[in-house]
């Protein structure tokens, strides 16, 4: 009974994570300019990856597998903002003008 509940919970996490990955990818395709697309990449990297990894951890149980997944999660949470920030800064230095909208809408 307990195992079944855990299994169900992990599937919910995995499917929600996959949905967020897809939403992030759609955002990368839909958003109008480079700097707004970075936000969609952020969605993919934090929520999508986090939920999928948590779902896999629930499948792994208390073992070495979970420790490794936790390490992947940890590294991802440190490297992803750094990579996104490096992209934004490089584009800013490469004189790529951001589209800015004023007060309306």
């Amino acid at each position: 009974m307990m195992a079944l509940a855990l299994d169900l919970l992990s599937w919910i996490f995995l499917l929600a994570g996959a949905a967020f990955l897809l939403i992030g990818a759609i955002g990368v395709l839909r958003f109008p300019d480079f700097y707004t697309r970075l936000h969609a990449v952020s969605v993919c990297d934090t929520m999508g990856a986090g939920l999928v990894l948590i779902g896999l951890m629930l499948q792994g149980g208390l073992s070495l597998v979970t420790v490794k997944l936790l390490l992947i999660f940890y590294f991802m949470m440190f490297t992803c903002p750094t990579a996104v920030h490096a992209l934004a800064q490089a584009a800013l230095q490469g004189k790529l003008k951001p589209v800015v909208e004023d007060r309306e809408s």
């Binding site: 993919c44 896999l56 997944l69 992947i72």
Partner: peptide
């Protein structure tokens, strides 16, 4: 359209590949 978009897409594909390998 820009080079940075391509690098960004490759970065995102890298994240997705990690998850794919784990799954």
């Amino acid at each position: 359209p820009t080079l940075y978009d391509r690098v960004m897409a490759v970065n995102m594909i890298g994240t997705l590949t990690v998850l794919m390998v784990a799954v």
